[in-house]
Simulated scan of single mutants.
Amino acid sequence: MSNINWLGSQDEFPNPIDCPDPDPSVPGLIAVSERIYPGQLARAYQMGIFPWYSENQPVLWWSPNPRMVLKPSNFKCHDSLKKTIKHFLSDPQKNICVDDDFGAVVRSCATTRRKDQDGTWITHEIMDAYTDLHEQGHAHSIAVKEHGRLIGGLYCVAFGGMVFGESMFSHQTDASKIALATLTAWCKQQQVEMIDCQQETAHLDSLGASPVARDEFLAHLQVALKQTNIEIPWKFDKAILRHWL
Rank of each mutant, 00 (worst) to 15 (best):
194 M>H: 04
164 F>G: 01
126 I>S: 08
66 P>A: 14
104 A>L: 04
200 E>P: 02
62 W>V: 03
3 N>G: 03
35 R>L: 00
54 S>R: 12
205 D>I: 10
201 T>G: 08
115 K>E: 07
209 A>N: 07
155 Y>G: 08
41 L>K: 03
229 N>F: 09
22 P>V: 08
108 S>Q: 10
100 D>S: 10
173 T>V: 08
65 N>T: 05
179 A>N: 09
127 M>H: 14
147 H>C: 13
40 Q>V: 02
224 A>G: 07
17 I>V: 10
140 H>P: 09
98 V>E: 08
138 H>T: 03
134 H>E: 05
77 C>R: 09
83 K>F: 12
49 I>R: 04
214 R>M: 04
44 A>S: 10
82 K>I: 02
8 G>I: 06
96 I>A: 03
144 V>N: 09
169 F>C: 07
187 C>Y: 11
124 H>Y: 05
46 Q>T: 13
39 G>D: 03
109 C>K: 03
88 F>D: 13
2 S>L: 12
142 I>K: 00
2 S>Y: 05
238 K>M: 03
97 C>V: 06
70 L>K: 04
191 Q>I: 03
173 T>A: 09
146 E>D: 12
180 L>I: 06
77 C>N: 13
42 A>K: 08
214 R>F: 01
174 D>K: 14
163 V>K: 03
106 V>H: 06
14 P>W: 02
137 G>R: 01
75 F>C: 00
113 R>Q: 11
90 S>C: 12
233 P>C: 08
